[in-house]
Amino acid sequence: MPVIEVTDLRKVYGPRTVVDGVSFSVERGEIFGILGPNGAGKTTTVECIGGLRQRDGGAITVVGMDPAQEGAAFRKVLGIQLQESRLPDKMTVVEALDLYASFYPEPHDPAELLERLGMVEQRKTYFAKLSGGQKQRLSVALALIGNPRVAILDELTTGLDPAARRDVWDLLADLRDTGVTLLLVSHLMEEAERLCDRVIVIDRGRVIAADTPEGLAASVQADQRMSFLPSTPFDLAVLGTLPDVHSVVTAGERIVVIGTDDVASAVIIALHERGISVGRLRVDQPSLDDAFVALTSSDEGSSVAEESVVR
């Protein structure tokens, strides 16, 4: 039985549907990523799962419990690291851990967690004096202090420098074997690639992709992408019928074609036969970031008119 099961989750703020039918399930011990651009509905989704928001539709179970009931029983099995949550300036690291440990029946030993976090030297440092990375590591520690079976970590490396980010990632990678199920919210593909067993991509409240990070990357990375300015406008369907072409997108005046390794020559030849020349040609191998952008590009507004033709 999955540890987290979300079925057709919906959340509406006034006239705006923020989460629009999200479904997924997470198995025990998995590190599961929820990816998506800012404002996609990621945080709202996990806040519904965490029982901090009342959902407007759908079903959620976490370790067999409904978060909407929001009892203490639920709080004991779930640890949450919230986006932009601070501690009082003059609370020290060890005081924060001791305080939060007192809330749970079977907490971790704070001293042990400190060592694990590499924060023994900072144990008596005030929260206000910690670096960004140390604050986030402490925040992760507070989410784990109660020995939760599920931990939700929301945008935990946002605003960190690359070194601090890697520190936090190392800590999470170490947790992989402990049986804690981690739900990770991120808009960084690199983070997901590094940590997650499986991911979903959410855009405008809907799940637009669900796969392993490798699977997601491979689906795009096996492809080549070319973009060009045609000498005259033409019917894009012409390209869609080519065997090497996977999808055709317009980005302003440029035409972006994604396809097999041979896509560039296939497109140039096909257009040449119709008397159209290819200007300012660019051919590149899309990265994982590009895959993410391609998946969510329709969010960018009217400048990119998506007209995807899937073979």
Partner: peptide
């Protein structure tokens, strides 16, 4: 100030 800092919301996620 505790509300602005998210301290109260953070406590909501614990059993107390």
């Amino acid at each position: 100030r505790y509300r602005e800092m998210g301290v109260l919301k953070r406590l909501r996620t614990t059993p107390v």
